[in-house]
Design a binder for these strands. Structure first.
Lengths: 242, 242
DNA sequence: TATCGCCAGATTGTTAACAATTCTATTGAA
DNA sequence: TTCAATAGAATTGTTAACAATCTGGCGATA
């Protein structure tokens, strides 16, 4: 698996219609084309993807399994919409899973994978130079770092839990979720320390550093949260005053 | 809005056909009625559950999301069959998730939940007295301990990842997976230490002890594995000699 | 004898119609 | 004006038939 971007899946030539709809739907959700909380009407989506309701329902069930869609009987499906508390929950899961993943990656990554990880960080360094503007790509780059570690741990259950499940959720909320958010240099520094531990094949340290890295991101998220709430209160005040 | 009565959730009776098939299938897999690796033919199963293929396929997709069923396009579904390596992978995931879960449980469990956990361990104590024989129930009891901690962590993402996903897999392989396997007293002792840390509201220690507990179970599993392999070699030798 | 290709049966993928449930807008009464 | 009841529309759940694909056995050929 030598894809340049770990997030791009290699489509197998034998693909069922439900597979295609699944990927198209997931893509639409993650890019924000379908927004969190939005109702997913089967007839409408089936027309949109040029298929019937059968494969579409199949795709919806799979997305439900990946927590990107919620379904209530007889009422229908919606794009998942996470509360602030649930986003915090997700941080705790990440801390646990990625910590272990990083430990195993330190033990099992090939030397060439480590080298690629190093050059990825060099690229991030230069990207940070030309500051803001490309914030979107910085966020995807941040995720790419975590992706590669997941792919290096050689535990397929962990890899799929992160890459196919939790990372997709994080991309959906990436504007709130990037570990670099508001601290790109600091995050890059933490990434470099993690890389160092992996290079030293020090699994214990690698786990500790990754967990601290994600904890720091969570604390930053909590701070932003307080800011957002204050702002929301302010605008509410405004609308009342009008 | 509808009648006030309609607002009362009636979870078990308001069930779609696909829900029922899902539960029946999951139950059949976990009890071993459908064995690991067994082919799941849609027409046959649909007849068996008295429904059509639609809801059945729906149920299969959900079970696929929970890693209890694997599906290959145009070929069909099978009950999942984990290799020894994948079982080891599962131990690592458990160590990560249950460690964090136990930390959060120590912080967030209610006092009454802690008390119930304590009385559960007392019951296990007496069950161990009347030795073997009831090994099945001992294994389910072991799982019950972990279940309750998952329910006490108050992080729904963690709870569902464990209770609805990984624990079901473990039940499928319970004969290989019980943390008490071959060491019931020792496991109970570890459970008591974990309970102590939770009672002290010492999250850090609770996580550390739970991780050690699962690591110990993994090591025991690995030992059994070597034994099994030796035995397999022996029988292989026998069959050759015949 | 081994290998390849082909055919029949079975199984999965897909579609469209039907049934059951929920949502919406209108009406009528307090 | 507000609320509740209701009828119709829209949506989801389910079924059965049709299409595409795979499996396994048979015979032809080298």
């Amino acid at each position: 698996m030598g894809a340049t971007l770990a997030s791009i899946p290699i489509p197998s030539t034998v693909q069922t219609l439900a597979d295609q709809v699944f990927e198209a739907l997931q893509s639409a959700i993650i890019t924000g084309d379908l927004k969190p909380g939005e109702k997913l009407r089967e007839p409408e989506l089936a027309r949109r993807f040029g298929t019937s309701r059968g494969p579409l329902r199949d795709a919806l069930r799979r997305l439900e399994g990946r927590h990107l869609v919620t379904n209530t009987p007889n009422t229908g499906a919606r794009v998942v919409s996470l509360s602030h508390g649930q986003l915090l929950d997700l941080y705790h899961v990440r801390e646990a899973l990625e910590g272990m993943t990083c430990r195993l990656a330190a033990e099992h990554m090939t030397d060439s994978e480590v080298d690629e990880l190093a050059s990825l960080l060099d690229r991030h360094e230069s990207e940070i130079q030309r500051k803001e503007g490309a914030e979107y790509f910085q966020q995807e780059g941040d995720l790419d770092f975590h992706f590669r570690i997941a792919n290096g741990c050689k535990n397929d259950l962990l890899r799929s839990a992160l890459c196919e499940d939790h990372y997709q959720l994080m991309r959906l909320y990436r504007y709130k979720f990037s570990s670099r958010l508001g601290r790109p240099r600091r995050a890059l520094e933490e990434h470099r320390m993690i890389l160092g531990a992996i290079r030293d094949r020090d699994g214990e340290l690698a786990e500790l550093l990754m967990r601290r890295h994600i904890r720091n991101a969570r604390k930053m998220f909590e701070k932003n949260l307080e800011g957002d709430l204050a702002k929301q209160d302010a605008t509410k005040q405004d609308s009342v005053n009008k």
